[in-house]
């Protein structure tokens, strides 16, 4: 019996936490600056909350959202939700930090959340942080093995938050399999300038890059630019699995994305246990916060050796045999 319990606990630890259904109905509100169908940042959180809603049913999870909320507009939306008795209000973006910290004092019984942020907030504020260096590392391993020109391009939005972690994890992944690879990193200075991301992709390709990656919703612009080189061996590694299903998906070798469902479930679970906030919830492969998919129809570029190396990296990261010192990367 003890052995069986030990095995069960080990399995739970490896596969991530398991949450039970909410005991009472929980009302969740989402505030985002983009839209719930942006095939990126906003959609990832929206899909996660919808998944939790489907899992437990609308009798236990009620969900509402507000899109295109600039930080200056988001305050009125958040106040409305708090006044209407919403239990958990998620302002999805680090730009909402000041707003949430202010509102958390005004509505002490409401749980607020914002991210990505690695800080621990007040007692009724959860923060969440994707450890994106993990997804970046796996994509980097693939990029390092795929490149023929030995030049790899990264399209960054700004050098902060989870994008900075992803880019540095990617750098570590490339260097782990191909130390001589030349990794070019550049930033657009924006999260949503699709045109500039495309311009940057063309600049990378002109400079010789044959494998590109990028984070934030603007990265779709970068992928679209790569797809213009239809008959050339220029490839993309995605930071969102939805890119695999786009018409440009034929250029995507593999993609990772965030699954915020464990974060949402953790917040519900903790709130119902009496913890309204004051914790930072990470997203990792271990807790099921990341999804990784190969593009099985991408062709011969994705070899068995590459799959093997990427699978090993993922297994090592999940089992925490591989620690990624992303902060040490200076580029």
């Amino acid at each position: 019996m003890k052995k069986a319990l030990a095995v069960l606990l080990t399995l739970l630890a490896v596969s991530g936490a398991v949450y039970g259904a909410p005991k009472t109905k929980v009302k969740i509100a989402l505030i985002i600056e983009s839209t719930v169908d942006d095939k990126g940042w906003g959609q990832a959180m929206h899909d996660a909350i919808k998944a939790v809603e489907r899992k437990y049913g609308s009798s236990l999870v009620e969900y509402s959202y507000s899109e295109k909320m600039k930080p200056v507009d988001a305050g009125s939306a958040a106040r409305q939700y708090a006044s209407r008795g919403f239990d958990i209000i998620i302002a999805h973006g680090a730009q909402f930090k000041n707003l949430i910290l202010e509102l958390s004092e005004e509505f002490p019984k409401t749980t607020f959340a914002f991210g990505t942020n690695a800080d621990v907030g007040p007692k009724n504020v959860f923060t969440y942080m994707p450890m994106s260096e993990e997804t970046g590392y796996i994509n980097g391993v693939i990029a390092g093995m795929v490149t023929r020109t030995n030049i790899i391009g990264i399209i960054g939005p700004v050098d902060a938050g989870d994008s900075a972690r992803y880019n540095r994890g990617f750098w570590l992944g490339v260097k782990s399999v191909n130390p001589k690879a030349d990794i070019k990193i550049a930033h657009t200075g924006s999260f949503a300038d699709y045109v500039k991301a495309a311009e940057l992709a063309h600049t990378h390709i002109k400079a010789g890059a044959d494998v590109l990656t990028g984070a934030a919703q603007q990265s779709t612009g970068g992928l679209r630019a790569v797809a213009e080189y239809k008959d050339k061996p220029i490839w993309w590694l995605g930071q969102d699995t939805l890119q695999l299903t786009m018409p440009e998906g034929f250029k995507v070798i593999a993609a990772c994305s965030y699954d915020y469902a464990p974060v949402v479930e953790a917040m519900i679970d903790k709130r119902q246990a009496g913890t309204l906030g004051g914790e930072n919830i990470p997203l990792t492969f271990k807790n099921g916060g990341f999804v990784f998919k190969y593009n099985d129809s991408v062709g011969t570029v994705l070899t068995a050796d590459i799959r093997k190396a990427a699978d090993k990296a993922r297994a090592d990261i999940t089992a925490q045999r591989l620690r990624l010192d992303w902060q040490a990367v200076k580029y």
Binding site: S34, T35, D38, K68, S190, A192, D193, Y194, V195, K196, A198, E199, Q217, T220, G221, R224, E228
Partner: peptide
């Protein structure tokens, strides 16, 4: 030009201040 020739896509913020 932006949606058909440069970005070859459309998104809300495509113009981005241009």
């Amino acid at each position: 030009y932006l949606s058909l020739a440069q970005a070859k896509m459309f998104a809300d913020d495509l113009i981005a201040g241009r």
